[in-house]
């Protein structure tokens, strides 16, 4: 993987900015896409959120001072964009959580870009029920294997706060799956 310093150095020079930004995209676009996709579920939404994320990154990358790791800064912007998107989506929605879960289940099963088995669908539904920030924490830990310290930098919350959030997320997922199993 290309060094962040090389990417940033190219971006800081106006003549090589585009080349540098393309290197940044090559290095991080896929990871960021999956992070966003797990947050917003659907491919089209994930693509739009990723595009907005990258526009914001492009506009403000020169202000990045290197006090944090580049990928935590990128994750931070992508997470914020995803949370903003989810917040707007939930304001538009007027249906109950049960209705939404049923809808998510049906839509994902019909979605040609969802290839999960029964358990993965159930897990996806469980994650869907989490409050947005807990969802972000759970996904980053569970799928991306990020450390609590990195998540703390990304979300601007203390490590203790992240651990508590993750603990609650796991308990809620477990309870959701148990509820489905014994109903």
């Amino acid at each position: 993987m290309i060094n962040d310093q090389i990417i940033l150095s190219k971006i800081s020079n106006p003549t090589t900015k585009e080349e540098g930004f393309r290197l940044l995209l090559k290095a991080y676009q896929e990871r960021l896409y999956w992070h966003v996709r797990r947050m917003v579920e659907y491919h089209d939404d994930a693509h739009d959120v990723l595009q907005n994320t990258m526009i914001k990154v492009y506009k403000s990358i020169e202000r990045f001072e290197g006090k944090s790791k580049l990928y935590t800064w990128l994750y931070r912007i992508a997470t914020n964009e995803s949370l903003t998107f989810l917040s707007k989506r939930s304001k538009k929605s007027t249906s109950s959580l049960d209705d939404e879960l049923e809808h998510v289940g049906r839509t994902l099963q019909a979605d040609s870009y969802f290839d999960g088995n029964e358990a993965q669908l159930r897990l996806t539904q469980a994650i869907y029920t989490l409050p947005e920030k807990q969802k972000a924490v759970f996904n980053m830990r569970y799928f991306d294997g990020l450390s609590y310290r990195d998540m703390s930098n990304i979300l601007g919350v203390t490590e203790g706060g992240i651990k508590a959030s993750y603990h609650h997320a796991v308990k809620k997922i477990e309870a959701f799956i148990k509820k489905g199993n014994y109903e």
Partner: peptide, 16 residues
């Protein structure tokens, strides 16, 4: 469990 359209990542850099 998620998938993307075929070749999505091949053209993503240019699209973005």
């Amino acid at each position: 469990p998620y998938e993307t359209p075929e070749g999505y990542f091949d053209t993503l850099e240019d699209t973005l």
